[in-house]
Each structure stands twice: as C-alpha cells, then as structure tokens.
Amino acid sequence: MATQVQARRQRPFPWAEALKHATIVLVCLALLFPLFLMVMMSVKDKEQIVYEFFAIRPPFHLENYTIAFGYIAPLISNSVVLAVGSTLLTVSVTALAGYAFGRLEFPLKNLLFGILFAKMMLPGIMNLIPSFTLAWKLGILDTPLPVILFCAGTSQPFWVFVMRTFVAQQPRELFESMRIDGASEFQNFRYLAVPLLRPMIALMSINVFVFVWNDYIWPLVTIQSFEKRPLTVGLAYLTQANPGDYGMLTAGYVIAALPLLVLFFISMRQFIEGLTAGSIKL
C-alpha cells in the first residue's frame, strides 16, 4: 500500500531528488567525520597523534587493538547485562506512563506528570553520595540492580514526555473504536500504542542503552567485584596504564562501539516496522 502511495507522489524533476540526497549525504559526512577520525586515531601511536593528527599514513598500529581488546573483552558481557536490563525496565515503565499521561484522564494527572517533568531540569552533580547511600541501605550493592533501577529512575522524564506527545497526537477515534470492542486499557496500550510508539521506543532504547554502555562512575562505585564491572572500567584501566596514548584508548572505544552499531541496525529495523504499523490508522 505504501509503495503505491509513493508511486503517485513521483515528481517530474529528478534533480530535486538528487538535491535531497546531496544534502543528506553532506550532513552525514559532517556527522560521520568524528567517527572516521576516531578510527584513524585508533591506529596511531602517541607520536603520530601529536605530530600528525589529521594525516593518514602508515605505519598503522594495529597492535593498539589487540592490547585494548585484552582490557575490554572480559567485561563486555557485563555491560550487555547492565545495558539490556536498564533498557528493558526503563522503556517499559516509560511507555506505560507516557501512554497514560497522553491518553487517560485521571485525578492528579497533571500533578504526577509535573513531578516527572520538573525532574528533567534539576542538575544532579551532587547526588552521588546520597544515591549510593540509598543503594547501600537497600542492600543491592555488587549486583546490576543499582545501575538498572537508578537508570530507570533518572533517565525517563524526557522520554515520558516524548511518549505522551506521540500518544496524544493520535486521533482519538483509533482508541475509541477498540474500547467499544471491549478491549481493556492495557490491551489498547499493548496492541495500539506500542506499535505506534515503536519508532520512539527504538530511539529511546538506543539512548538508554548508549548511556548505560558509557556510564563509568556509578557502576564503578556500586559494583565492587572487578569481574562484574562494565567495560568502561576496562577503558579506565587502559587509560591509566597507557597515559596520554589516545590511539590505544580510541582503539578501545572503537571496540566498545561495535556492539552499539549492531544495536542501531536492529533498532532501526524496528523503526521501519513502526512506520508500517503507523500507517494502519485511518
């Protein structure tokens, strides 16, 4: 159906399409330049970084990768556990709340939303110790729970807001028709809102995942056993062991980024599915 619609939108000027592609390609090039630079840096030694930062010429120090891999590899699975757990919990509670704030009417709604919303603007540079004290009193140290629970607690306000906006934007009739069929509100959520929200869920998942993936201080202090710690700890060791060796460190970053790239492809597929689901309505 979608392709038919597009066929009808075909315009007579092919150069207009070319111009669009050119614009986006230029933007992509600018966006991807740091990544390119990062890959280039990752095969340089200290000297090449200082003396020829932008140059691309041999020797390429591939040993950066073997050394960095030794620091990071054993910790990757921990990061996966932390990031997957945080993402699942955060996304599910956020989607539920976003749906309710965008769709339902209930007393105290604005107050409750206000509580979440306001938190977005409170800079939290000094709550490390209070947060830690809380995690300690709950007896959850040295497990993935502090990372997962605190992530779910702190990273949702903006995304609840996003979900709410997208849900509220949908035509009311869509939900009404289901409601009349005797669907429960949860079924509405599950079978209508979730598919509609899929692109935003994908985007949020990426954000939460990347955030936990790169988080260092919080998992460091709440997970004491080295063998349970995430890969950012490995990166910190790598940095301390090779001071000022940005090439080596960047190699570590590149390795750490590979799982993220896989995730992007997967979530972007969700994004596409979300779009087809989106065209169901009306």
Binding site: G70, Y71, P74, L75, S77, N78, V81, F226, E227, K228, G234, Y237
Partner: peptide, 8 residues
C-alpha cells in the same frame, strides 16, 4: 556474571 582473567 563470572568473567575469567580479569586484569586485577
């Protein structure tokens, strides 16, 4: 999550 051969 047990991981062998951790650096420290």
């Amino acid at each position: 999550a047990t991981v062998p051969d951790a650096p420290t």
